[in-house]
Simulated scan of single mutants.
Amino acid sequence: MSRNPHALVVHAQDAEEVALPGGGRFRLLEDSRATGGLLGANRLALPAGADGTRPHHHRLSTELFHVLDGTMEFLLDGVLTAVDKGGLVVVPPGTAHAFGASADGPAEFFAVLTPGIERFAYFRQLGRIARGEAGWDSMDELHDTYDVHFVGGAQWR
Rank of each mutant, 00 (worst) to 15 (best):
E133K: 10
G22E: 07
D77A: 15
A7R: 11
R25L: 12
T81E: 13
L38I: 02
L75S: 11
L20F: 04
D144K: 09
A121C: 01
A121M: 00
T95C: 12
V83P: 01
F120V: 06
G52L: 03
F109T: 00
G127Y: 07
A103S: 14
A12F: 08
V91R: 04
D77S: 13
E108V: 01
L46Q: 09
I117D: 00
L75H: 05
L80F: 04
D51S: 14
A121N: 09
R119M: 10
G87M: 10
A15H: 02
H6R: 13
A34H: 11
F150W: 14
G87N: 04
G49S: 08
Q155R: 14
E133Y: 06
E118K: 14
D51N: 12
T53F: 05
K85G: 11
V79R: 14
R25P: 01
P21F: 06
S138R: 07
S138Q: 05
G40T: 13
E118F: 00
L8G: 00
L75W: 09
W156V: 01
T62G: 01
F109C: 12
A134I: 03
H143C: 10
H97L: 08
V90Y: 00
Q125T: 15
A154T: 14
L113Q: 13
L46Y: 08
H66V: 13
E118Y: 02
A82C: 07
R3L: 14
H97Q: 15
S2F: 02
L76A: 05
F74G: 07
G132F: 02
I129Y: 08
A111D: 11
V91C: 05
